[in-house]
Every structure is written in structure tokens, then in C-alpha cells.
Amino acid sequence: MREHSEAALRVRGLRSHYGDFEVLHEVDATFAGGKITVVAGRSGCGKTTLLRNVLRLINPTSGTIELFGRDISELEEDELVKLRPRIGVLFQNGALLQSLTVGANISVPLEQHTRLPADVIERIVLRKLQLVELNGIEHLMPSELSGGMRKRAALARTLALDPEIVFFDEPSAGLDPVTAASLDRLIVELSRKLGITVIVVTHELTSIRRIADRMLFLDAGRAVFEGTVEEAEMCPVESVRQFFAQGSSEPPARRSPDEARM
């Protein structure tokens, strides 16, 4: 069994700019291996930007990004290409290739990074679709799917190469509560059963209570809190308090049997 107690990803002093506009100011964060860490914060605070930096889709201005025990903040594209099959990303809208069927989409990473025979690839595709509860849609085009199906199909592609760490950018945004809940269940399963390190960007409180082992809180491009969800709810920092207060009118996610009877 893999040892997961230490950090899978560690970010130190990360700064990031769009042009002259500084989005992230010296962010420090640690993401525990084999755990689900939720990155929360108000819209526009830099969550997606943090993700893009960590994935090196944009280049950080300064700081270090330690992934799989090495600093990747200055790796060349050639090196990154070799590293990326170990990393999975689910983009906000799935980002399936519109010109290919769902099945072809899922085989893209398998075809590009392995020399597996076509029939094995096909079997993997079907397995991954089964994992995300989408049997029999491999011949459909992405445009023929609903939003929730598209996200799950994209997740199947994300998982095609059995990544060690998976990033989700607002997985439940735009989904109905039932679909969102089933996606959350899937995320928890990935983490518990496969031991994958999961990092989820979201600001849905219900979702956070369902899945989070740990939380990172961003406020206007600064990391203002890091810790467990319980600690977060006690956290005196204003923006964190506000975040939890906005959801306090909702019913608690888990009711005790006593409450349920009343």
C-alpha cells in the first residue's frame, strides 16, 4: 500500500499575474496525499488561477510548486509532457473534444501515452465509463450529452491513465442537486478506494461538508486558512466566517436520528 501521510503537493510563495494584474500573492499551501482537499473562496479570488499554475498551464511569476517530490515550477514543456499523464484534471465544463465521440475522447490519452492494442484501449474506455455510471454512450458526441453526463464523461477521460492526483474545478457548478451529489460520491470513492489525491475547487457548502477532508481558503489571492473542515468552521478569519455563515440557513448535511424523527 502507498504511504499517504505526507504532502502530495506543496506550494510555496506562489505569485501569479495576468499581464500587470497580480492574482495570487505569495500563496503557501500543502495538499495531503490520498486526501480530499477543497479549495474554497469567493468567485474571482483566484482558485482557478491557482489550479492553472499548479498544472503549469500558466507560468507562475515566482514561487515553487512541489509535486511528486520535485519542484515543477520551472520545468520545460518537454518534461511536463512526461509528467502530466500522472495528473488528471476535470475542467469546469468538461472540455471534451467536440469533434470526437465520447469513446474517442476517453481513448485520446491512452492512444497518445501508451502502446496498448486497440481492443485493450476499448476495454479500458468501457470500464471507465462504467466507473462514472455512463454505460453505452461511447458512440455519442459530446454535444448530445447533458451537462452532468458531459462532466462525468470528462471524468472518465481524466481517469483513463489512472492518475495519482486529480484536480476538479467546480465539479458541481451548473448541476442539479441530485447529479451533484452523485458526482460528490464518486469523488469520495476515488479517494477512499483508489487512494487518489484529490483537489476540488468549489464553493458549495453542502458539497464541502460531503467530501472535504481538508480545506484551503483563498481570499483575494491570499491563502487565509488551511486545515480540517471542523477547524475551518471555528476559524475566526472574517472571510471564512462569512463563508460558513452564508450557508447556516440551509439544513445541516447530516441529521442525527433524533432530529430526523421530529
Binding site: 498551464l57 502530466r84 484534471v89 475542467f91 472540455a95 501515452h113
Partner: peptide, 25 residues
């Protein structure tokens, strides 16, 4: 329009994130 759309829908970034070079692919 294909490349522009792929940028808007994050498809190019998704390819890069999979370790695939968009220029090549």
C-alpha cells in the same frame, strides 16, 4: 474558428493537461 472554440471551451488546455501538445495533435 475551431482553434478559437477549443480555446474558449478549455479543450486546448485539457489537451495540454493530458500531456498532449495542441500544435502537434
Amino acid at each position: 474558428s475551431e482553434i478559437g472554440t477549443m480555446r474558449v471551451t478549455d479543450e486546448l488546455d485539457a489537451l495540454r493537461a493530458m500531456g498532449i501538445r495542441p500544435v502537434e495533435y
